[in-house]
Amino acid sequence: MDLFLQQLLTGLANGAIYACLALAVVMIYQAIDHFNFAQGEMAMFSTYICWAMIAGGVPYWIAFFATIIISFVGGLAIERIIFKPLHNAPVLSHIVVFIGLVAIFNSFAGAIWDHNIKTFPSPFPDGSFGGLIGLHEVGMFFVTLLLLLAIFCFFRFTRVGMAMQAAAANPDSAGLVGIRVGWMLALGWGLAAAIGAVAGMMIAPIVFLEPNMMLGILLYGFAAAIVGGISSPGGAVAGGFLVGIIENMAGTYIPAIGSELKLTVALILIVTVLLFKPNGLFGKTIVTRV
């Protein structure tokens, strides 16, 4: 029973990481209507910016909020400079541009801040909760929930949030009612970059800072977002925890799997979930017409 509890909490702690990133993934999906494969590398780059500021003597919370603002502006700039001219290109070409961005961010982070693994400070006190789960993980859990609440309120109760949803769902009609669709896209990019930055700064104390830190995690983040239902931020968070727990439990309790095939099993389970709930656990069912 102790082992079970231990694994459950470890799963939850990992899940908090995935949930955090899944939230950023869903956020940008709502704004631009497709997946941003460069999300993880953008978050990693933001985290490096924060690290550089802290290393330069800036207090943690000032660096934290400054990084969020810088990331927001950076995300906005990427949409305006790179994606605006490609507005009419096919979606598959956009994905290639995402891949290009991944390569650029990854390579530049390595070139500017070298490839050595760096420790990243946590804003939460050291120690653990009953020896089972670290206080940083608990803190991260609450930050994720806070972020979720903020996003929910933003999309539900503000004019800009509504306008962004409209611009993503039906750009033509949104344009006709006076929403500036282009700027809504840019705003979506900015917000997604900012949320990604928060995720990066929360994750970095656990996985340590290095240019490839996001590679594995982003995959789980995507998986979590899809399992939870890409149209629902709450679902993404639930999906994140679910993926974390499944991954840990499968590795512990099924001896043939061990740590070797942990990832495979997690992914197979996810695909199985999708076979029965093709729109994710909490996603809206989309009805298509001819």
């Binding site: 490609l86 961005l101 650029i104």
Partner: peptide, 22 residues
């Protein structure tokens, strides 16, 4: 050698600019 990925990424983006449908 150090920035090879970045150069690959930049070339990719430029190629998509020049020929968005391949």
């Amino acid at each position: 050698t150090g920035l090879s990925y970045a150069i690959f990424g930049i070339i990719l983006i430029l190629v998509i600019y020049v020929m968005p449908s391949g």
